[in-house]
Design a binder for these strands. Structure first.
Lengths: 334, 334
DNA sequence: GTCTCTAATTCTCATCTCGAGTATAAGGAA
DNA sequence: TTCCTTATACTCGAGATGAGAATTAGAGAC
């Protein structure tokens, strides 16, 4: 543990001077897979980290600062950007531990359309399911979930107070759908935090956190520097939630695309397989796309129409999005 | 364009030292009206402000700091708390302008159940519609909206570039439902920001913002210190959105309540009138409440059953909330 | 040219959900 | 007992949704 200073009576103790770190989760979908832009953290064991940098006086707005940092670090120009959350606990493990000041991290979700190949620009586009293997249900229930279940259950059972135990069990049931058996793809962050608390992810062991480890770490996903994996979880959760009521997917699509490409993009993000005819009906009923007139050949079958996003849709519908539903909703009590 | 600095090698100019302000929107519903806890800002013209205070080294987490400040400033102990957004533009007008450092404000939405009467504790519970009179549609379309419409339209028409004009008109259509005629109660923030940009709220004139003023300021709601009204707008928007898929309303209810009380609470927050039988059906179908066995007399009619929140509901449904719908949804193109 | 394969697109149908309205129940007061 | 008020229950039709079957249109094999 670090010496946690308690000087509460120094002159200007009324306010603490902190430095602010702007951190970007840069998302794209290529080849039907969701990708995050990562860099290699300098020191130590070369963990993956997210593009990030300190807020400086020249940044007029936070978002401006974020864009600047991502550009200088990766060469990537951002499209859509949305603030996610501000992390500010005093004892967070940080990738760039400079001094003993408190560091606030402001996380952003950003989307880019055509991720340039990272020729010689630094940065790697990685499939985000490398970091969260249990989140990809496109080919059915992921195998690693089975491996997580037992340690999680044992962690819950190992709580001291019975009330604690119940609380943990409830969180597990809610997040992973153990018991009820229903998976809610939006709860990415809750699941990561449970895995963390249970000591199942590598990050939890870096600074003497929980010690419950005994689970196959290989199955708990690739680690990231600092708490970047938590920020990534926050971003995925937000994006999965948001595509349902806001047309954000289109920020990831090329100007013209087929309905199948759109579906596959949504599937990639949500980590779910969808029913093709129903997906089409949804998109068309909502008026989210319009014809370009062109078609694609070379699909291997009947040519597909190329469509584009129809901007007027946001004016017509109150929640223009793709409300995908994982499975049949839980039926109410009989 | 701003000079985008590339000097990545100066000593410590790379990071700016900022102070952080924790700001709370404390919400309760009493007497069927939504309330915010406000204080009087010290200096100047005694504007209403939200409870807030700087982050200090003793605060281990941001939320902890927030709770501490609200308690010391108002005596109010918080229940539910949720981070909203971090405001950090360099040129924000702030209620407590200390020095020239950048100040980051982290806004929180917090809910309290039984707001203690503020006997001699500082702080006033104010109907939040005093700050946003156009947001209350419980008795039909609010009158002040008619007064806003014209100035807003003129502001849009007054844009320099035609593309700008179109963009403004689109935002107006989307936020206020002019034209389409459909009101979306969630877009509180967008509406406030439009009113601000159009110079229709007092805050816009405090520091030489836009100068479009000519609208009846009396109808544009009570002003607040700094950008607290924007933070309040953010909170209302978040809360209105969230009751639809998360059982947060119950954080505002007493332990036992009638279905009508619950409905009136939702109506107060959403600023809408709901269909009684359908609201009951919704609540009961979702299994959100259970009987307490007791009934209330003195309702003026048939006694009402007292129910309580049923915690298991969150385990059964993937989005346990009260998806209230303002009106018939927009029909698709013919 | 015809057949076959693949993927795009269209239809069907039963089941839910939801908005809206109507009917009945149970206290209190006149 | 009657009326008034509010709580609670029932009904109906339109639209949304989940699931699957049927049809269409290129490409390549023969």
């Amino acid at each position: 543990m670090e010496a946690r200073k308690k000087r509460r009576s120094t002159a200007d103790r009324s306010s603490e001077s902190v430095t602010v770190d702007l951190t970007a989760v840069v998302v794209a979908v290529t080849g039907g897979e969701p990708r995050v832009l990562t860099l290699s953290s300098a020191g130590e064991e070369a963990l993956d980290r997210l593009p990030s940098g300190p807020l400086t006086p020249e940044h007029r707005t936070l978002e401006q600062g974020l864009r600047a940092w991502v550009e200088t670090q990766t060469g990537q120009v951002l499209g859509y950007a949305e603030q996610l959350y501000t992390f500010g606990d005093r004892d967070r493990r940080l990738p760039t531990a400079k001094g003993s000041d408190r560091i606030l991290s402001i996380g952003y979700l950003t989307l880019v359309r055509g991720p340039r190949k990272t020729d010689r620009a630094p940065g790697v586009w990685q499939d985000w399911y490398r970091f969260f293997p249990w989140e990809d249900w496109r080919d059915g229930r992921p195998a690693c979930l089975a491996a997580l279940r037992d340690p999680l259950m044992r962690w819950a059972a190992g709580a001291n107070a019975p009330s604690d135990r119940r609380a943990r069990e409830e969180r597990l049931a809610l997040s992973f759908g153990f018991a009820s058996g229903s998976w809610n793809e939006d709860r990415v962050l809750e699941r990561y935090e449970l895995a963390y608390e249970a000591g199942l992810v590598a990050e939890a062991h870096r600074e003497g956190g929980s010690t419950f480890l005994d689970a196959p770490l290989a199955q708990t996903g690739r680690a990231m520097a600092g708490d970047h994996r938590r920020i990534l979880a926050t971003a995925i959760a937000r994006l999965r939630g948001k595509i349902k009521y806001r047309p954000v997917v289109f920020e990831l699509m090329p100007p013209a695309f087929t309905l199948l490409q759109l579906q596959q993009t949504v599937e990639a993000l949500a980590g779910l397989r969808l029913h093709k005819p129903n997906f089409r009906r949804l998109v068309e009923q909502q008026g989210l796309v319009e014809e370009t007139g062109a078609v694609t050949l070379g699909t291997g079958g009947r040519p597909a129409r190329l469509v584009r996003f129809r901007r007027e849709a946001v004016l017509e519908r109150s929640a223009p999005g793709l409300r995908v539903r994982a499975a049949r909703r839980a039926r109410r009590a009989p």
